[in-house]
Design a protein around this nucleic acid. Structure first.
Length: 889
DNA sequence: GCAAGGTC
């Protein structure tokens, strides 16, 4: 083929991924295109001739692989210790093409130079629009004369692709802007909080969830944390649940036609005396009178058209398939053309969709083909246009089959199941609802009302094809109004309230979906991230529990009073993104207000970091690791004057404070603590012009003042031996470099340095670990007299319980904190008590509880066989309930 | 070593 011969327009077409480029090229070229390699081995270039609106075009179709660019901080802020994490809220960011995408960029530049048109075939959603602008950016920098077009399509089928290229539009900048704002906010919040909490907690505790804490990252993200929040909240709800006994009266009646079970209209009562009085009343006058018999037609409607979240939920429920696996399989089915685009929020078919044609494709299937035929037969009157689920992402239709298959050789059982679900779901939502006849019988016994109901299915309709739904029912014996009978059984039964179950994957997806956490394409990633980060675990029934780590992090923020683990932040951001994409708010306006709020929140969280440390301390033992050794770049200030031979280096503690300490710690403890209010400290080559080299700010009046404060506050004395330097005493040895420091406003000193008061207490104990000593108080080992350290047990039996242990590994001294007779009044504060507090915190988020009457979440179950803490309502004995009370008459 | 969003 001679490219671009005659007056043909050369058109560069760019798709979001190689498979779409290939499919588009195949469709438009009617499978007769040529193909050549691009610079990137995955992204080939397809060529063919085509006419767009009658104009001859030479088409080149190639692809990117998702986003072409990445948002990142400027180099200066890239390293974790290069700046105060708070600076990440305004540090300069830039978009650039990462190394592994350079080849794609080069292909685009080279091809764009030789083309007149650029047609963007990115997915039709906000992200796709943003990628479109990344492609535009690269292509127009190589050729500023390009005529830029947008092709909109939602299924890789011939009709739609041909139609799309004949109706080209323009890209939508507002959609792309919304994504720019989202990216910047996510990056700044994620990086700042992740650095902060990782540096604060990782070295301070023995976390040991991955086997090697060195690589542990305690990430924070605006999607992953609310997802974790859902899991923790449910967990707390379960923990806080107090089972409560309740009472109910049941009645059965057996006749020639069978047995009817009547339930008490009151449901259940928590008051035993009340229940027993009513029960005795019924027993004394047991004759039942039929007061009402109602026969009603009931409809059970088919599901709405299938959106991504529904697909994931149903695959999890019906096949126990994880959401991650579902999306992988669905993507493969989509790429092979069997189903439409699997990432869609839409649960409503557009009126233009030829639903009959989609159903017609299925008539030859050996299993559901007969149903499809019946559905299309007007005489069967089975067809009903699908209901509207009320969601439309304006980009993709609901998931539906796009190609017939009886199963392919390369399909796994999951492919087969998922295709079947998509087809059956489609056929079901085009079907009439199931029809049932429901009978309700109401009776009266001694003035108390009871009822029973039964159902007969008259027409299964959609249930015939949607085998995943069931609509059970039993047939009731016939009763007539006024009829009287003596019940076969009349019993007073007890039960206990039960907490709701742990969140299943389908529940979690529902929570995320409702709150707008993540996208169709990423919700499963956020769930997986919680497992990877060891914040949560999933059991064999796909139910999620938080780990100690996950719970501690949420507890820490919760106790600070922040709702960073709640979905509101993301929901708010999502609403803002929508406003940007609709043009009602500008990108900069949204960025400014959101980042301003989040920065204030970040600074506040840092002031209250003790809450986070406390929460972690509930589950994890403090570490004796020399803090920060593994984290900070070593910056040598001068040789150590105390131990001769080693060097004094600038270090930063996980909690943010700076110090200049000897490298030979703990053998040599020569150290100078810098004030807690320092926001930055760095070793420079500049030498103080006033005094000798090696000055640590001794000539700076503010610094000197603060160091005095810090010294009397205790820290420098605490960790410094008697020969400890004066504020500028680091200059004792042969100075080499100078320290450069910056300050926050002095007004923040007290807030920033809450541990100052605590450290006074630890000073006299000579504890090596200031952080544990600051909460430990002073306990001396009764064997060897050395100071003890306070640790937190993490065993099954004593999790969260604190104990003192001698620091000498050879001394076996051990004492529970709550068993110390020291008059401090410290009681046991283990996991239980924390949970109590946490549970109440959890309830702040909309929960409730009052003596177990959990009308909005609890389940009632028979007490039979259950051991329930509590005591008999009749005699108070905890060994039984009132219904089995031997003292009851 | 950090987010979430694309995708291989």
């Amino acid at each position: 083929m001679q490219p671009g011969g005659g007056g043909a327009i050369r058109v560069l077409n760019v798709a979001e991924k190689p498979s779409v480029a290939k499919a588009v090229a195949e469709i438009l070229s009617r499978r007769s295109m040529q193909s050549r390699a691009g610079r990137s081995q995955y992204n080939r270039i397809f060529e063919f001739n085509y006419a767009i609106n009658g104009r001859a075009c030479h088409m080149l179709v190639t692809s990117v692989t998702g986003h072409l660019m990445e948002l990142e901080f400027d180099d200066r802020f890239r390293r974790w210790h290069s700046c105060d994490p708070a600076e990440l809220f305004q540090a300069p960011v830039r978009k650039s093409v990462p190394q592994d995408k350079q080849a794609i960029k080069q292909t685009l530049e080279e091809e764009a130079r030789r083309c007149q048109w650029l047609v963007l075939w990115l997915d039709c959603d906000r992200e796709g629009e943003n990628i479109a602008y990344e492609v535009i950016d690269v292509c127009t920098s190589a050729n500023s004369h390009l005529n830029i077009w947008r092709a909109r399509f939602s299924a890789l089928i011939d009709r739609e692709i041909h139609e799309s290229v004949q109706h080209l539009g323009r890209p939508n900048k507002l959609f792309a802007d919304a994504v720019d704002a989202r990216q910047e906010i996510d990056l700044r919040i994620g990086a700042s909080f992740t650095r902060f909490q990782t540096m604060l907690l990782k070295d301070a505790f023995v976390i040991n969830v991955t086997g090697d804490d060195r690589n542990l990252v305690l990430s924070y993200g605006p999607c992953q944390f609310p997802t974790l929040g859902f899991i923790v909240e449910r967990f707390w709800e379960i923990q806080a649940h107090e089972p409560e006994e309740f009472w109910t009266i049941n009645c059965t009646h057996t006749s020639d036609e069978g047995t009817a079970s009547f339930g008490w209209i009151r449901g259940h009562l928590f008051d035993y005396s009340c229940a027993i009085s009513i029960y005795e009343m019924c027993v004394s006058e047991p004759m039942a009178t039929v007061q009402n018999v109602r026969n009603q037609e009931k409809l059970k409607y088919p599901p709405y058209p299938l959106s991504t979240v529904e697909l994931q939920k149903r695959a999890s429920r019906y096949f126990r398939m994880s959401s991650e696996r579902t999306m992988k399989v669905a993507e493969e089915l989509y790429q092979a053309g069997f189903i439409s685009y699997p990432r869609t929020e839409t649960d409503n078919f557009s009126p233009n969709t030829d639903l009959h044609a989609i159903a017609r494709e299925q008539v030859n299937h050996p299993v559901w083909g007969a149903y499809a035929q019946r559905l299309l037969n007007p005489e069967a009157r089975l067809w009903r246009n699908p209901s509207n689920g009320g969601h439309d992402d304006k980009a993709h239709p609901p998931i539906h089959p796009t190609k017939f298959s009886e199963g392919e050789r390369n399909w796994s059982p999951d492919h087969t199941r998922l295709y079947e679900l998509v087809v059956r779901h489609f056929l079901a939502c085009c079907s009439q609802p199931a029809v049932g006849a429901e009978t309700t019988v109401e009776i009266d016994i001694a003035g108390e009302q009871f009822n029973a109901s039964g159902r007969v299915i008259l027409a299964k309709n959609y249930l015939d094809v949607y085998r995943f739904d069931s609509w059970g029912g039993t047939l009731l014996p016939t009763y007539n109004i006024g009829q009287q009978f003596v019940p076969t059984t009349l019993t007073l039964d007890s039960g206990v309230t039960r907490p709701p179950p742990l969140l299943a994957e389908a529940d979690l997806l529902s929570c995320m979906d409702k709150a707008g956490i993540g996208t169709d394409a990423t919700m499963h990633d956020h769930i997986k991230k919680l497992l990877d980060r060891c914040y949560a675990t999933k059991d064999e029934n796909t139910r999620f529990s938080p780990t100690n780590l996950g719970e501690a992090l949420v507890m820490g923020y919760d106790e600070m009073g922040y709702e960073l683990w709640k979905p509101y932040l993301r929901s708010m951001m999502e609403a803002d993104m929508k406003s940007v994409s609709m043009g009602t708010k500008s990108k900069s306006e949204v960025l400014q207000s959101c980042l301003q709020q989040m920065k204030a929140c970040f600074l506040d969280a840092r002031v209250n970091k003790a809450k986070l440390l406390d929460a972690m301390g509930t589950f994890f033992a403090r570490s004796n690791r020399p803090i920060n050794e593994t984290q900070n770049p070593v910056e040598v200030v001068r040789p150590c004057g105390a131990c001769n031979g080693s060097e004094m280096v600038l270090k930063r503690r996980a909690t943010g404070e700076f110090m200049v300490g000897c490298r030979s710690y703990p053998q040599c403890r020569n150290v100078v603590w810098l004030p807690g209010s320092l926001s930055e400290a760095a070793v420079t080559n500049q030498v103080c012009p006033i005094c000798a080299p090696g000055c640590v700010g001794g000539c700076d009046d503010i610094l000197r003042e603060l160091m005095e404060l810090s010294r009397f506050g205790g820290r420098s004395q605490a960790a410094t031996p008697a020969r400890g330097p004066t504020p500028n005493g680091v200059g004792q040895g042969g100075p080499r470099q100078d320290l450069h420091t910056n300050f926050r406003p002095a007004g923040q000193l007290n807030n920033e340095n809450p541990s100052v008061m605590h450290s006074q207490g630890f000073r006299s104990t000579h504890t090596q670990n200031p952080s544990s000593a600051s909460v430990a108080g002073q306990v001396l080992c009764t064997s060897c007299g050395a100071a003890c350290i306070l640790l937190v047990a993490n065993t099954e039996a004593n999790r969260g319980r604190k104990f003192y242990k001698c620091q000498d590994p050879g001394c076996g001294f051990f004492k529970w904190e709550d068993e110390l007779d020291n008059g401090t009044g410290r009681g046991r504060r283990g996991r239980g008590s924390s949970r109590q507090a946490s549970a109440s915190a959890g309830r702040r988020g909309g929960g409730r509880r009052g003596r177990g009457r959990n009308a909005d979440g609890g389940m009632f179950v028979s007490a039979t066989g259950d051991t329930v803490p509590g005591s008999c309502f009749n005699c108070g004995d905890p060994s039984h309930f009132a219904n089995a009370c031997p003292n009851r008459r």
